[in-house]
Design a protein around this nucleic acid. Sequence first.
DNA 1: CGACACGTTGAGATATATCAAACGTGGTGG
DNA 2: CCACCACGTTTGATATATCTCAACGTGTCG
Lengths: 246, 246
Amino acid sequence: MITDKFLRRRRGAKLTPQERETLEAAVSNIREIPSRQIVVEAGRTLGRSTLLIEGLMCRYRDDRNGLRQLVAVHVPGDFVDLHGYPLKTLDHDVATLTAARIAEIPHRSLDEICARQPDLAKKLWYATLLDAAIHREWLFRLGRLDAAGRIAHFLCETNARLEAVGLSDGRSFDLTITQNDLAEICGLTSVHINRVMRSLREENIMSFRSSRVQIQDLEGLRRRGQFDPDYLYLDALGTTATDAAR
Amino acid sequence: MITDKFLRRRRGAKLTPQERETLEAAVSNIREIPSRQIVVEAGRTLGRSTLLIEGLMCRYRDDRNGLRQLVAVHVPGDFVDLHGYPLKTLDHDVATLTAARIAEIPHRSLDEICARQPDLAKKLWYATLLDAAIHREWLFRLGRLDAAGRIAHFLCETNARLEAVGLSDGRSFDLTITQNDLAEICGLTSVHINRVMRSLREENIMSFRSSRVQIQDLEGLRRRGQFDPDYLYLDALGTTATDAAR
DNA sequence: CGACACGTTGAGATATATCAAACGTGGTGG
DNA sequence: CCACCACGTTTGATATATCTCAACGTGTCG
């Protein structure tokens, strides 16, 4: 099911079966996109939005010198560029980090949903505000945490988000990105990421090898990143729950 | 008029007179709030949202050691905690930076707007996405700019936002915050803010004294902060326009 | 006038960046 | 099957931005 993971386990915004069906019906097509491909360019007028089904995507801004800052990483179930619906054009680029499968939903269909199904519309709105909440947490991460804290915080967040959609067992998950990507997420250089990750590894807190993250000491990692998952608005407290539900 | 400044000069989302009236009618009450007062606490269930009429407000997250990171600064015309409407509860605190006048709008009234006036609802949605766009720009600021760049970028942004609501002449504006606030915005210490601002002053780029920002070299300030106002979705390109309109 | 918050300056410590080189490793073509 | 290439990772040495701590200055308000 295409919209399987959308808003899954989100407190107070789960979709009803009917709403899910409406959304499924709104999908105009499904596309496979290779790794490292730009999907939406800043400034371009948009006629549809993208639901990520499989793979990883990101949003970013490049600076004058070619340095890049990622402003979001998207996991399956995320409505990647839904912001582009009310805004009509995006202020940043959107690209794949890995090969990805996406579903496209025309804005025309969203118009109908907004006109006829205010409850569903509000849940779409909610989904974009979740992104904003994550943005805020990233601001905290960049503004107040040191390198180890930033890495720890990002890994805790990604672990929690992937777990919510059944892609992490709560301790380990696939993350097919480079150390340079991590640097662009954390506002650091890849050299420094490398050194700090080594120390986290040597402290037996976590490891990141051949695209797989293993968290040995989740509590320690959380402490390092001052991570508190409240801002993800997940329904089960903590991340201990199995992903049996739904 | 209470909603005078709301979405003013925002590309493709200006309110019609009727919509404006609807919003005005939705205001349940107006409050004056002293400086440095918490208005919304994280986690509390919300029954209304706050439109800022006059003064400055902010949203922030405190870390374990009492260090604070501001994640947003709000100027008159901003619908400060509209995020709390779909989300029901906020993940961060909201407070005044200066004495402020606010209008409160019950969520019940917003429900009616969403049910009956999808176009207006979409503009409310748009307003929250503008916040998200600003969050993203702040991420860029924190992740990729040095101290001078961060200060420059923040001042350019604030100048543009205030100008859009008629509170900056494009070169100077009142900004009643401390250097410590600036530090909490820029992810730096107040000591460093002080030093870097001195150097910006000595280069005749800008000055900030007794709560007033004067920009001598707007072009230079923009260059320093790599500031491009696209993400503010203002209708007039650049910031040269007088604020005659509307 | 004194208290208090805010701004300013100095000296030294530290985290992170920069530059440069070597080291895997998986994939590809000969 | 090997040689080689491209790409990402790892490490070292040095430079630099920012922090920390501590003191002093200045304006405002009761």
